[in-house]
């Protein structure tokens, strides 16, 4: 008997996890009136109007473009800067290397909100306010340490003898680094990029504080949809559903290495 119902518990758990997502999708295909007026388990008047609005109204789709832009810039900066740093930490011994390595991680211990005010003031002074690069740089403060930690773990998994063999074969450092070393830790780069992407994609406070019009992230757009007729819940639900897609897409590529990434490459 117990064996026959073994599937029940995980099934229940999965339903429990998926319910909010289902409800979000459910709402996104309803009209605001239906959402507010009645309790329905699935859309009575199925409508794609919410999605049409998002894909045709520039204030909406620009939010996605802005978000993806600064997230993309941030991921590129973080991984590019973290690669040589992680290589140094993994291959060389120098004065205070362990302390420096740990100090990097302490950057992630402060809540982003602490940095909102200094960033806002600094960026306003130097004219970076409301640009994509402003948000990307602010997020790099949190993402570079994380990327260094993840990449260092993966790099330390590659024996030092690989470097030596390449030098003996005649490779210069950069040629070795690009042609042999990076392909050898490509999974780690994917995982590091994923974590940078995810942090930057869901971070709202800094992104919202440092932008006003030109580089407004999608999450900020969503908080500003109050109109005379109140919040447009259907539209919000559709926008929310769409924000899940990029993350799901990125996770698909690194699904086999994610656990190693959570352990900072040390599995």
């Amino acid at each position: 008997m117990t064996r026959r119902y073994k599937w029940l518990l995980p099934a229940f758990y999965i339903v429990f996890l998926m319910l909010p997502i289902y409800w979000l999708l459910n709402m996104s295909f309803k009209t605001t009136n239906e959402i507010l007026g009645s309790f329905t388990l699935w859309p009575k008047n199925f409508t794609l109007e919410n999605y049409t609005t998002i894909f045709t109204d520039p204030t909406w789709y620009n939010g996605y473009i802005d978000s993806l832009t600064y997230v993309g810039i941030n991921t590129a900066i973080s991984v590019t800067v973290a690669l040589p740093a992680a290589y140094a930490f993994s291959r060389y011994r120098f004065l205070g290397d362990k302390h420096l390595f740990f100090w990097l991680l302490t950057n992630r211990m402060a809540p982003p909100a602490v940095f909102a005010l200094p960033f806002l003031q600094l960026y306003s002074e130097v004219g970076l306010f409301d640009t994509h690069i402003a948000v990307a740089l602010a997020h790099a403060l949190f993402n570079i340490p994380l990327a260094v930690w993840i990449l260092e773990g993966f790099m330390s998994g590659v024996p030092k003898e690989l470097d030596e063999t390449a030098y003996v074969d005649g490779y210069s450092f950069w040629r070795f680094f690009i042609k042999i070393f990076i392909p050898a830790i490509i999974a780690g780069i994917g995982v590091a990029a994923f974590f940078c992407f995810m942090f930057s994609w869901v971070e709202l406070l800094l992104a919202k504080t440092l932008t006003s019009v030109e580089a407004k992230p999608i999450a900020a757009v969503m908080t500003r949809t109050a109109s005379t007729s109140g919040y447009e819940l259907g539209l919000l639900a559709a926008a929310g559903s769409l924000t899940i897609i990029p993350g799901a897409f990125v996770i698909y590529f690194v699904r086999n290495y994610i656990a190693k990434g959570f352990a900072l490459g040390r599995v």
């Binding site: 030098y167 003996v168 074969d169 490779y171």
Partner: peptide
């Protein structure tokens, strides 16, 4: 080392994985 004509084999099996 790049300027010398040497080759080396290690105890671990080292090959270029890609």
């Amino acid at each position: 080392v790049q300027k010398r004509n040497v080759s080396m084999v290690h105890q671990q099996f080292i090959n270029y994985p890609n």
